[in-house]
């Protein structure tokens, strides 16, 4: 398993948001986390990415316990998340949004970066090439000089994804990648996700749009009221009566 979260518990002022939840992600798989609003999906997602600390339980990643590791260190180890509401760096150009993301930049060190400028420039050139590749893959290359704040909602979602890819993540975590985008862009994003999965990356997707998720995921966890209701292949989960009663029926 690339990532395992075991017996995760989390409460917010008296209400138990997660009740002993365990999930595991196989390397190279696309796993979906689904459930109605308020089921605790985002909390579990944030506990895995490090933005929220679990009350108890543990998270293991690639053989190492990371339960207490801060989010930025997890990102450096290859666990990279995107946000449901795009968190673009508005005043920066699209290309700069990607370049910021590059890891371990000489030019970001102080004060060393101020005098080892040749090395920094060379690294910047390599990073720019990588960024161009990713922008082309996601169809954003033409808007590379535009300020990120002027992009459309769908383009911002793509930018989120592009920025995450700059880190060459092993585990890419996407929080509702289809929320708030037009259907046509959603289709594009789904295709990209399948491509990214095919490159051997592990994906964890929190998503509301069930029909879409069922098409791309190889494994599904269903979370209802902070408890794991079911897990399995999409087709099995879809047939599960409890899932249908708790979630699909209502949806």
């Amino acid at each position: 398993m690339l990532l395992e979260a075991r017996d995760i518990e989390k409460s917010y002022v008296g209400s138990r948001v997660l009740k002993s939840v365990s999930v595991a992600l196989k390397p190279g798989s696309i796993t979906a986390l689904i459930g109605p609003n308020g089921a605790g999906k985002t909390t579990l997602f944030d506990i895995i990415s490090g933005f929220v600390q679990a009350d108890s339980g543990m998270v293991r990643y690639s053989g190492e316990e990371i339960t207490r590791k801060p989010a930025f260190l997890r990102a450096r180890r290859g666990i990279v998340k995107t946000f449901q509401i795009p968190h673009e760096f508005g005043g920066l150009s699209v290309l700069d949004n990607l370049l910021v993301a590059s890891s371990d930049q000489i030019g970001e060190r102080f004060p060393v970066g101020l005098w080892s400028r040749r090395a920094a420039r060379e690294q910047e050139r390599v990073n720019t090439e990588t960024a161009y590749g990713i922008l082309e893959f996601l169809g954003l290359l033409a808007s590379r000089e535009v300020k990120a704040e002027t992009l459309s909602a769908g383009e911002k979602k793509l930018l989120e994804l592009a920025r995450a890819l700059m880190l060459a993540p092993r585990l890419l975590m996407l929080d509702e990648p289809l929320a708030g985008v037009p259907v046509s862009v959603g289709e594009q994003i789904l295709e990209h996700l399948v491509d990214i999965g095919a490159q051997g990356k592990t994906l964890l997707i929190v998503e509301h749009n069930l029909e879409a998720v069922m098409r791309v995921a190889d494994w599904v966890y269903v979370l209802v009221d902070g408890e794991l209701l079911a897990s399995g292949r999409p087709s099995d989960v879809q047939c599960n009566e409890r899932v249908q009663a708790a979630y699909l029926g209502k949806a």
Binding site: A71, F72, K81, F89, G90, L92, D96, Q105
Partner: peptide, 20 residues
């Protein structure tokens, strides 16, 4: 690149954290 990163932190700190 340091200045670019500082502007990114100003624009959205949690996004910068999510990028390591």
């Amino acid at each position: 690149p340091l200045g670019r990163l500082l502007r990114a932190i100003q624009a959205n700190e949690s996004a910068a954290q999510a990028l390591g």
